[in-house]
Structures are given as C-alpha cells and as structure tokens.
Write a protein that binds this DNA or RNA. Structure first.
Lengths: 232, 232
DNA sequence: CAGTGGTCTAGACCACAGC
DNA sequence: CTGTGGTCTAGACCACTGT
C-alpha cells in the first residue's frame, strides 16, 4: 500500500480514464482536489497540475467554489503553429525565395483600419510580396504596417529582407488575432501565384498589436493544395 | 525593500518586458531560474510557472542543462476551439437543423484507412449529413466511423441525433489530428450546400483515436464565407 | 559528470462565487 | 460567509543533456 512517487501526468491519466469509463459522466461533478489527492495518495498541488491540464485541453471545467465538472459539450481544442514563412519552406527541404512586389505609404483604407479595433493608424506602409518555394510561388502576402508603431520599417530594405522576418524579429507582439478562410482566385491573384483563376485558396489573416498599439495586419494567400496541420 | 507578494503573471510580464525591450534579444540566454527568482525576490517555483507560460506561447525555449533562450525565430501559436456544430450554430442565434443524407456500412476505402496510421479498420459506417443554420445549409459532413471501436453507433438513430453529437458524448478521444484546407465545390457538393460549382470552400478534416484504436474520420465542408477564428 | 529545468511535498493564504 | 480552486513558499530530489 506504499504509494509510489506519482507524476502529475499519471494522476491526469487516471482521472481521464475515470472520465472515459464513465465513472464520471459528462456533466458530473468531480470530488474536490483535496479528496482526489487523498484518494491517490499525492499532494494537492499534483492534482491541481493534472486538473489544469485536463482543463486546458477542454475535457473538464473548473470554478472556484463551484468545483470541477466534466464538460457536457466537449470542444476540440487544437494548437496551430505558424512559423516564419522562410522556415516553413526550408523545413520541407525546398529552396526559399522572396520577391518584393510593391511597397508604398498610403492612407489607411477603412477595411484595414477596422481590423485594429480602437486605435486606427492614419497612414501605413503597404507591402506586397511573394514567397517562393523551389522558385515557384508559395504564399502571396499583402501587408499593412503601422508607421506610428514601427517607423523603423521605412528604413528596412524590403527587397532583401521580408517584412515578415523583420517584424517577427524586431517587433514582437503581445496580442494577435487570426482568421482562416477560403477564397476563389481572381485573375490578378491567380497570375501572381501562377495558378488558374477560380482556384480555391486558403487564406490566413493575422493582425498583431503590442499592448494596444497596432503593429501589422497581413493577408497571406496560399497556393492551391496548401494545408494547415495541428501540432502533434 | 520588502518584496510584495508577486503572482507568476507579474513575473511573466516582467520577463516578457525585458525580452520586448531587448534586455534579452532573440537568441540570448536568460539567467537560470534560481537567479531570476533571487533577482525578483520570489520562489523558484514561481519563476518556473512564469517560464512555462512563456514557453507555451512560443516566446522562449527551455532545455535542461541547456538553459532558457529567447526564441530566435518565434512562431505564432494559436489555439482553435472547434465546438459541436449544433452549438456553433446556436451561438450565433440561428436555428440549428440537421439532415441525414446517407448511412451505409462499407469496406474501408484506402484513402480513409490511410488517415488512421497503424490500425486500419476493415469495414466502417459511412455517414453523410448536412448541418443547417436557419434552414440553410451550413456544413456538409462526410464521416467514417470504426465499427470495431464504436459498434454502438449501428444502433443509434442517426436521422434524429447527428453522429457528431453522439460520438462526442459517447466516444471521447485521447488523440486527434486536424487538417485545414480549401477546395473548389464540385457539382454535387455545390448542390448540397446550395451554392455555385467552383465556389471556394473551407474544409476541416478531423481524425480521432482512443488510445491507438481509430474512432472516426470526418471531412466537414463549410459554406462559402465560413471563417475560423482564434480564441481570444 | 555536473548543471539546469521539471516536479513533488506540505502547509499556508488568497480570491472568487455560490449560499 | 464559507467552500473550492488558484497560487506562493521553501526545500528536496529527479531527469535530461551538454561538456
């Protein structure tokens, strides 16, 4: 009956098993952490750690005073890693390439300003660029950068270094927003991505802030067949 | 000099600030947890908790013996919540509806078997269904369920309860795989989603296992304009 | 082999939310 | 007001991995 040293993952798995085998069914209340700790012969901190993990992955819900419940309507919670485009390309073994298409300071269009809630930058730098994999188009990037938050961007030679890389290394964000959808390629987009007009393309739209200051909003249009995968 | 009680979030923010202001630049090594704890006048456990969070969000990288480094190439790490389709629809205030299109036991096609690595089910239940929002098509679901892992599915009245809901409540998974991409609607798909052939559609493909046993693989085709958003 | 992050324990106090 | 989860502390040991 001597309790071996148990890791929080052991505890987590044992609790999860009890949920899977319906010892605790969806909607049921689980015992207090303290009682579970006693039952398993470990410290309450260890149970807390296990519960935190189950809560993070969406299997249970915890409330102070309310206790811990098995979620009645579990969600699928997935983590997406979006690397710098260059690294994403290089990881597949392909040769990365980059072309600046256009670079212009412009007044902020309304639809771009709208993405930055609250603070709306007056004029921004618009950068259009193409990322290549093995000399073929890979991602078409349409980016707006706040000149007020990142004035240094004006001095960067964007023909050599992509705004993507410069920003990620020099303007870390504290908050971001990601939106994923599909579009049908128009003639211009199709031409730049070397594909057919009407092709279905996956689009990633990201907006980033540092504190409440807007940094950048970018629309990345991928080539046909592009897939996003969840990490492990 | 009396150090006030500090929460791990305070510590996390202070460390993050030091990274943002370049006290520690990308690639730099941070001091050992113990030293940071001393510097901030808190327990090492608290620093550990703060570091764990920064590591989770992709800002730093930690290695035993190797120490803690600011990531040279930060990734954007986003969390996606994918709820049960009915709840997703109801949350927008729309009326949820559901139609079973077809239900058939079939030998597992090769492309479906391939999604379940290792264990490949022999015959599966194929369920095609349509989820409606305000009586209009919303998501078209093409699902394969393992009869070996979830034989009870054969007795479920799938005309009344969607396989989506039944599975989520009765066959929780321990592992899953998610893939997101865009397709162009073919004639049949367009007809069922009441849209034009050639429309760009976002597709979510999910495969789930319980342990190493395959449960289901589903392809959810969304209507034009559908968007995935990151949580908070 | 030794340094650094990862985890466990026991006990205490805090903070939020139901009662 | 009181119960329950959330966190902090101090100290100890473990486990991975670079040297």
């Amino acid at each position: 009956m001597s309790a071996d040293r148990q890791s929080w993952k052991d505890i987590r798995d044992r609790i999860r098993d009890q949920i899977l085998d319906r010892t605790y069914a969806p909607g049921d209340k689980l015992p207090r952490d303290a009682d579970i700790a006693e039952q398993f012969g470990c410290a309450r901190t260890t149970v807390q750690r296990a519960m935190q993990d189950l809560s993070d992955t969406g299997l249970i819900e915890r409330k102070r005073k309310g206790g811990t419940h098995v979620r009645a309507n579990p969600v699928t919670r997935a983590t997406l890693d979006i690397p710098i485009t260059r690294l994403e390309v290089e990881e597949t073994g392909a040769v990365y390439g980059y072309q600046l298409i256009d670079r212009k300071v412009l007044p902020t269009p309304r639809e771009v300003a709208a993405k930055f809630e609250q603070v709306e930058p007056n004029s921004m730098l618009r950068v259009q660029a193409l990322h290549l994999a093995d000399h073929k188009p890979h991602i078409l990037e349409d980016r707006w950068v706040s000149i007020e938050t990142a004035p240094e961007i004006l001095d960067v030679d964007l023909a050599r270094e992509s705004a993507n890389e410069w920003l990620v290394r020099n303007k870390p964000y504290t908050r971001f927003d990601l939106r994923i959808y599909a579009i049908s390629a128009d003639a211009e987009t199709a031409r730049m991505l070397a594909t057919e007009p009407g092709s279905a393309l996956l689009v990633l739209e990201r907006t980033t802030w540092i504190g409440t200051d807007p940094i950048t909003s970018v629309r990345s249009i991928t080539i046909p067949g592009y897939q996003l995968l969840t990490k492990s």
